[in-house]
Amino acid sequence: MLKFAIKRILVSIPTLLAIITLVFFLVHITPGNPFDGERALSPEALKSLMAQYRLDLPMWQQYLLYLNDFIHGSFGISMKYLGQPINHLLFPDNMGGFWVTLRLSIYTMVIAVPFGIICGAYAGLHKNSWFDKLVVSSNIFFTAVPTMVTGPLCVLVFAVTFRLLPAGGWGDGDIAHLFLPVLVLILAYTPTIAFVTRGSIIDVLNSNYIRTARAKGLPTKKILFKHAIRPTLLPVISLLGPMFAGILVGAVVTEQIFTLPGLGVLTTNAATNRDYNMIMAITILGSILTIVFNIVVDLLYMVLDPKIKQ
């Protein structure tokens, strides 16, 4: 187990390095820099700025220095907020930046995963019931219609028409302010989890060993919780890896809709101000999270699937 985990982590390091290299050279090979344009700077000011951001060095030196910074846990300095380290903007001491996005994603996962699995299992056990049909059709609807459409519609219904909840803003992170954003995210991801669970449990219940268990007279409860539960969960677990990246991005879009002070705002500001360092940092941070989460999912998979154990 430990050996597998270490191996899995070591394998993902070259991937991360490749991503950083790709992003770095994409940004630095493209002509122009954020300082030419809008307002004219005196040559001296420009020169000192270039020096501050190491843009006067040869590219390979910049690259190595960037890697060095990264290994020491720093994403460099923001180009918009001059002199501000990006780490302070991404991970502020108070609530904001990455913490908002992380909190939204975690709430979503914690609610959507068990809820989706339970709904899906119930639907699969009661195939062709009205609940089953609800699960299937809501999967079609919510995979087709994204949060950027359902989000504003939820605001229109709950916040503007019925005035039940605030339309946006973080507040103090209280339930009232978080309810709608999390609801929108849960609506987006629960149906897929439920749908996959449903398909999986239907397959498992049709398999030979379940029939054998039934034939030898095991009670249904025991069949479900002893024999069916593990293989049913396997496809769901492997779904969660890519889904986490989706939820992270989904959370950023949701922040835009509900004007929450998370990664979304930082991304927008960075994009409009051509703050390259910031966008690089956000992209790389997203990649790290995706990779880490995929490792976690792989380990979980190994725990659940006895066939993979070496």
Partner: peptide, 20 residues
């Protein structure tokens, strides 16, 4: 392809658009 899969799609898109 595997490496590109590791990059969150939307952020990479935004990066490209800001660059170009």
């Amino acid at each position: 392809v595997d490496i590109l899969y590791g990059i969150p799609f939307l952020f990479f898109c935004i990066l490209l658009i800001t660059l170009f």
